[in-house]
Design a protein around this nucleic acid. Sequence first.
DNA 1: AATATTATTCCAAATTATGGAATTGTGAAA
DNA 2: TTTCACAATTCCATAATTTGGAATAATATT
Lengths: 307, 307
Amino acid sequence: MFISNLNVTVMLNRLEMLRIFCTAAESRSFKEAANRLGISPQAVTRAVKELEQLQGELLFHRNTRHIQVTQVGEKFALIAKERLRAVDELFQTSAPNSGNELQGRVRIAAPVGFGHKCLMPVLLELSTIHPQLDIDLTLSDERVDVVDEKIDIGIRIGFMRDSRFIARQLAKTNMYVVASPDLINRVGRPASIVDLNHLPVTGLVDRNTGRLWPWVFSMGRQWTPSITRFRSADSEAELMSVQNGLGFAQIPDFLVQDLLRQEKLVRVLEEVEPVPWDLYIYRPQRGPVPQRIRLVFDHLVSRLSVH
Amino acid sequence: MFISNLNVTVMLNRLEMLRIFCTAAESRSFKEAANRLGISPQAVTRAVKELEQLQGELLFHRNTRHIQVTQVGEKFALIAKERLRAVDELFQTSAPNSGNELQGRVRIAAPVGFGHKCLMPVLLELSTIHPQLDIDLTLSDERVDVVDEKIDIGIRIGFMRDSRFIARQLAKTNMYVVASPDLINRVGRPASIVDLNHLPVTGLVDRNTGRLWPWVFSMGRQWTPSITRFRSADSEAELMSVQNGLGFAQIPDFLVQDLLRQEKLVRVLEEVEPVPWDLYIYRPQRGPVPQRIRLVFDHLVSRLSVH
DNA sequence: AATATTATTCCAAATTATGGAATTGTGAAA
DNA sequence: TTTCACAATTCCATAATTTGGAATAATATT
C-alpha cells in the first residue's frame, strides 16, 4: 500500500486504473474516455493522477482544453494495453478440444515468422488433438527445392504453378512498411519511397546471398536498404528491433497485424504498397497420400484460411 | 459487471483475486495463503469462490482439512502468475539510459535461442544508447567457420582454443532436461536416461545433417531421440512445443531459467546432467580493432556475464 | 467420542469509490 | 479585448464495497 498526497484517494484497483489510463491514452479528452468507460470524468482524472504518482512521472500533458499523452505515457500505454488484455483473457472461457487421433510423422515447412506466429499455435492444437502425431517442422525464409522434396506439407508466399503439387490459397498477404509510434514521433513518417533513404531502417538478410532483401512497392518498384540501424537473417530478431523503434521495415502483414491492432506498430507508405501476394499451402501430388497427411493438410487449411 | 449468486459479494478487483488465488495455489491451506497475504481466510475463500464462478469450474478440491488445486486450477495458476507478475512489473520504476554514442556496422553472431532470449534485449539497449550503430546479427545454431570470418563479435557454446580469436567466458551453461508440469502429471518423470525411450520427447534438428542432435549426459553418455512428438531445426519452435506439453527436451539453461522460475517448466534427470559447457564471447585478433567493436564487446561482456 | 483446526457463511463496522456541485483554466467566438 | 462554452480538477456527502469477528459446519487426529 502506498501513501498518497493530500486529497488523492488511494485506489487499489490497479487493473481498472490501467484500463482507464489506456482508454484515456486513445481518447481526445478525459471526458470522452469517461463516456467510453461509462464512468465519470472525475474517475478518469483520479486514475491518471494516481498512476502518475505511482510511476513518478507525467503521463499526460493537459489543460482544460486538450490532453496530450507524453512519450513516456505512450510507451507505458502500449505495454499496459497488452498486459491488460492478457489479464482480461484469463476471464474468458475457452472451448474444449475434440477430434479423432492420428499418428506418424508429418513433415511441414513454412517461413520462419509465419511458423512462429500463425502456424505453431495450430500445430500445438493439432498435437493436443492427436497426441500420437510426430510433427517435423522446418522453418526457413528461402525457397529450398531439395527441402520441398522431403516435406509432406508446405506453406509459402509467392506463386505456385507446379503440377507436381496440390496447392490451396490460404490468404492474400500484404507487405507493410511499419515502424513503432515512438520512432515516428521522433523522425516523422516517410511521404514517399525515396524518403526511406534518410530514415532509419532495418533489413532482413537473405541467408543464401548474404545481402538484404529488397522492399517491394506498387507498379513493380523496388527499394533496397543500404544503411541500416539493424539487420539480420532472423526475421524474429528484425521484428524485435522494429518494435523497439530501431527503424522502419517491410514485413508481411501476418507478422504485424496484431501489433498494428494493438498500436504497437504503425503502417506508413500505404499508398505505394505492392499488390498482395498469395500465401498458399501445398503438398506433393505423388502416389497415395497417407490419411494423416490429408487430414492434417485439411486441418491446416481450415485453421489458417482467412475468409 | 457480473451478477453473483446469493451470498457471494461482487469483487471487482480481479488483480487481487488472481493474486489471492495464485498464493493459495502454492499454499497448503487457505489459512496459510491468508497469512502470507496479510488478509483474512474469509477473503481467500471469497476470492477463490468468485474466481471459480467466473471461470465456470472448480479450481480447488477442498474440505476443512486440506486443499488440492485441480488440474484446471494448476494450469490457470501458472498462466495467471505470469500475467500477474507482468502487471505488477508495470508499477516498478525503471532506470534511465546513459552512455556515449558509437556509429558504424557491428557484425554479431550467436545461437538462435540465446540471440532471441538474452542477446536481443542487450542489443536493443545498446541501440538505444548508440542510435548510430548498425547492428548486423546472424543467428544460427551451427558452427559455420566461414561466418566466423565475417563477424566482429561472436557468442558460442563449447570451447574456444583458437589463437586467432580473443575469447572471454561469459558463463557456464547447463543442459537441462525439461518438460511442462502438465506433461509430467500425465506421464510421470523419467528416473533414468533409458526411461526416455518410452516417454514423449521433442527433438532439435541439425540443419546441416538433417538428423537430431544427441542429448548429452554425465560421464560422456549420450542419448539420441528416435521417435519424437515434435522436431524442428528451429529451437524457438521446439521450446514452444515443450511449453505446451508435447514432450521432454534437452535445452540450454539460459533458454529455460525464467520458465523454470515461473514453474512453467520442470527439470528432470538432474542427477545425470552433463558438466556445464562454456558460454563465451569472442572477437578476431586481427589488425587494429575499431573502438566501436571494442566498446560493444565490452558492453556485451558486462551485460551478459553471470557472476 | 472428544478435540482441534480450518473452510465457509453471516453480519455489523470500516473503508473505499462515486458523481454532483463548485472552482479553475483555457481556447474560441463575438 | 471581453465574453462564453467547455473540460480538468477538487471537494464532499452518499452509496457501494470490503473487511474480519463470530458462528457454523466439516474433518482428521487423538
